[in-house]
């Protein structure tokens, strides 16, 4: 059974009296523990689709379901709770909080997700995740002192610390060189397999498709191809 589905999702933007349809009836089904990549040219609507799926903006029409819950009809507070507890986000840029250390970024995420773990267990979990992304030694560093690759690894750690069910990643390797990109993708792949996290990822980098289970290609707001890798 699908964990996450999008059914006939449409998104229209109005520029004055001119209306532009960015998404034209999207149907997607994500299975648990699988990595799905959205590819396509710039302006094909893949990033808009990702942000709508993640509940960061609303669809103009269609239905989005997560664990049999209808997200499109939820109140904003209910949606926020799902974003905090069940979803994880990796953005194109790391977007770390500049006044928190690496360790505190994860602490904040656990706090936001209202983690049921005890403080002691949370500390252990933070250590384990930071070791997993190779950032434990830099746990007390502030974002300003981290390299681009390190920041993105912390962003990955922040996205999975609360064990989300779905991870949304918008070009997570766009700001990294090819070596770092491979590292981060390998990391996401391992985490997805170890923690059974479903991943929906936008990428324009064809080298990254080696790490995913399914590729969805988009063009002009429509899905034009779906294939398993």
């Amino acid at each position: 059974m699908s964990l996450f589905t999008m059914d006939n999702v449409r998104k229209t933007f109005a520029h004055g009296e001119v209306k532009e349809e960015i998404l034209k009836g999207i149907n997607i089904s994500l299975s648990q523990g699988k990595i799905t990549a959205l590819t396509g040219a710039s302006g094909s609507g893949k990033s808009t689709l990702l942000t709508i799926a993640a509940g960061l903006q609303t669809a103009s029409d269609g239905q989005i379901s997560f664990e049999q819950q209808e997200l499109t009809s939820m109140r904003s507070e209910e949606l926020r709770q799902i974003r905090a507890k069940d979803f994880g986000f990796i953005f194109q840029f790391a977007h770390l909080v500049p006044f928190l250390t690496v360790q505190e970024q994860l602490d904040l995420m656990l706090d936001t997700a209202e983690s049921p773990l005890s403080k002691q267990t949370q500390k252990k979990e933070i250590k384990q995740v930071l070791e997993l992304v190779g950032m434990w030694k830099r746990k007390d560093a502030y974002p300003a002192s981290l390299s681009g690759g390190e920041k993105q690894r912390v962003a990955v750690a922040r996205a999975i610390i609360h064990s989300p069910k779905v991870l949304f990643a918008d070009e997570p390797t766009a700001s990294l060189d090819s070596k770092r990109s491979q590292e981060v993708m390998k990391l996401i792949q391992n985490l997805s397999k170890e923690r059974h996290i479903t991943v929906l990822m936008v990428t324009h980098d064809m080298d990254m498709l080696d790490f995913v289970d399914e590729v969805i290609e988009m063009r002009d707001g429509k899905i034009v191809d779906k294939k398993n890798t």
Binding site: L56, Q81, A84, F87, P98
Partner: peptide, 11 residues
């Protein structure tokens, strides 16, 4: 920062 914090679910 506020936008990102709201995105990850901070109230």
């Amino acid at each position: 920062i506020y936008g990102i914090l709201k995105a990850i679910g901070v109230k």
